[in-house]
Simulated assay, not measured.
Amino acid sequence: MDASWEDFGWERLGNGTGRRRLPVWDATATLVAGADAVLLHDTGSTLREGAELRTQAEALLGRRVTHIALSHPHFDHVLGTAAFAGAEVYGAVGTAELLTHGAAQLRADAMRHGMSEEDATAATDVLVAPHHQVSGEWTLDLGGGLQVLLANVGPGHTGHDLAVLVPGSPAVVLCGDLVEESGEPQAGQDAVPSHWPAALDRLLELGGEDALYVPGHGAVVDAAFVRAQRDRLATRFGVS
């Protein structure tokens, strides 16, 4: 390929994996490329962002995104999904029902956070719900020996938190908003604080001490950061 990850503002993490911090809300989108298939973790906050991610993925990899994993059903992570026609979409159990019946709420949330009515309406009018719901763990074979693990590790940040483990040296764990580096983790009305520390314990079990942990917002962190955030959340919410 003539184009490099850096040309498009992506950070290469190894193991066929690279991620980009999107503008405005600093949400992370991550590509995982195997020999036969390409997984995108989160799709951006608008159809425009989704289309840009699609174009960049095709320029970088020479092929289309075939699979999408949605970390959780918040507008800044899911509203670009309709830009990826034909992709198989995965989410934690409950995500499909929420997106199917909650488009108006997502539209309102997006506008409350500053999105234009035009962009919010365009994205929620064609909102895509997951085709596959993950209740425990689901292994995706992307080809060339690369098998990624989708893990329903929540509830925590929401009632429907899906993480992704990309094996390798080091392993890469895609955390969604269970982990945030650029600010304190946000606990909205749909958060389940009593289970959030346990969700971070599960992330640490998946990745181990040497993994790279990719937060939903902010810089890539290590296990020590995740553990410290876990302890702060436990103190904040009075959970052991």
Rank of each mutant, 00 (worst) to 15 (best):
A199P: 03
V164H: 10
E52P: 00
T81G: 05
D201Y: 12
V134Y: 06
V148F: 01
G50Y: 05
L212H: 13
G218A: 10
A37T: 09
Y213Q: 10
L149E: 14
G18H: 10
S71L: 04
L61M: 02
H160I: 00
A151E: 12
R232W: 07
H72T: 02
A59C: 00
P130I: 06
A33N: 07
R232D: 14
H77R: 08
R48K: 13
Q189M: 08
M1A: 11
T66I: 07
L150I: 09
L60Y: 07
C175I: 07
D42R: 10
D7E: 14
G218W: 10
R20C: 09
Y213T: 11
H41Q: 13
A228Y: 04
V164P: 12
V126G: 13
L212T: 10
T124M: 11
H101D: 14
P197G: 05
A29K: 10
H41E: 10
T95D: 13
P197K: 03
Q186D: 12
P197I: 08
G80T: 02
G176I: 06
L140K: 11
V166P: 01
V78K: 13
E97Q: 14
G168E: 11
G159E: 15
E184W: 08
G143T: 02
A87I: 01
S45W: 13
Q56V: 13
L60S: 06
V226N: 04
G218Q: 06
D7V: 03
R236E: 14
G94S: 06
D119T: 02
G156P: 00
G62K: 08
G114D: 13
E205T: 15
A129F: 06
V126P: 12
E205V: 14
A234P: 07
V38L: 04
R202T: 15
D76M: 10
L162S: 04
E118W: 09
A151W: 11
E137K: 05
L53Q: 05
E184F: 07
C175T: 12
G50V: 07
G34C: 12
